[in-house]
Nucleic acid binder design. Structure first.
Lengths: 157, 157
DNA sequence: TGGTCGCCTATGGCAATCCATGGAAACAGA
DNA sequence: TCTGTTTCCATGGATTGCCATAGGCGACCA
């Protein structure tokens, strides 16, 4: 299955519109939706987004939790209650809701980062900082990367 | 399985296009993609590339992590967020993104070095220097290469 | 064995297309 | 009517695809 890949920074106009990178659009539409589903990240000040496929995975995960537990309700209120289905306009743009922009501290530019089945939308400077941190950790924990490399070298398709 | 093999230095034109060595192309297309996946090396100032098989192994590993863990997001941000799927044009060329060229210090020439299931793209002088160093170190670490027969049989001859 | 022919690859340039972006106009709710 | 939202159009720049050229390598033939 196609996945969200790469990093793109686009501008936000006075009406809160932003172009979703064309490659991200084609991933979402291939999953059957002319739009993306966005919600605040539970990790930090960043927006997360995905296509309908991964959205279904989220609901599955929630369904496996105790339906009346406080934990389930909290997760659901963020991942579902605070989520928005943002439809592409004729030119492939979406309007980022004010609450989401505020959560991520986004003003007039947004950085889309592909993470496979989901993606993130960062305020550009914050995104760069996160990437630098992630890169440093990846270097430090090179052992985490050895497993895929070893698997690929010995196995194959 | 076919593997990336050999060293080739090709020119980069004004638009950042470079011919992928024909032998590398056939490896990638045999894996089912008319293109290659490239990303900055975590180790040094060089671009790494691979076909869909190797890339698929990386994504599989990420999918085994919890989809909302900070660890997964960081690894994905580096391994997928900073990668690009570069499709061959009709003549077997790809466009090396500006960020990747900058990361490797590449200007108007690029050296492709096959490494089996993946390959590297060097600025030619840096690649030559690395090769000289690699040769010296390979000499020193030659004993790391264990005979598969010895491992399988439990003893040597 | 020497020469010629032809295919494949690499490389440059041109043209059409796509994409991001800004703004105007149509629309809906209050 | 006024405000906020959505649809449509225009544009410039970047990207992609296509064609032409040239050099190298091997195959085939004499």
């Amino acid at each position: 299955m196609e996945s969200f890949r790469g990093r793109f920074t686009n501008k936000i106009d006075a009406k809160g519109r932003v172009s979703v990178p064309a490659k991200f659009r084609s991933v979402a539409t291939a999953q059957g939706l002319s739009g993306v589903i966005c919600f605040p990240s539970i990790q930090g000040q960043v927006i997360e987004g995905c296509g309908p496929s991964f959205s279904g995975v989220i609901e599955e995960m929630l369904e496996r939790l105790d339906p009346f537990s406080a934990e389930r309700d909290m997760l659901a209120s963020v991942l579902i209650g605070s989520s928005s289905e943002l439809m592409f306009d004729g030119d492939g743009r979406v309007v980022l809701p004010e609450e989401l922009r505020e959560h991520a501290g986004i003003k007039d530019e947004a950085t889309f980062v592909g993470l496979g089945q989901k993606f993130q939308i960062w305020e550009p400077a914050a995104g760069a900082a996160f990437f630098a941190e992630a890169l440093a950790k990846a270097r430090a924990h090179g052992d985490l990367l050895k497993s895929p490399l070893a698997l690929a070298g010995g196995g194959g398709k």
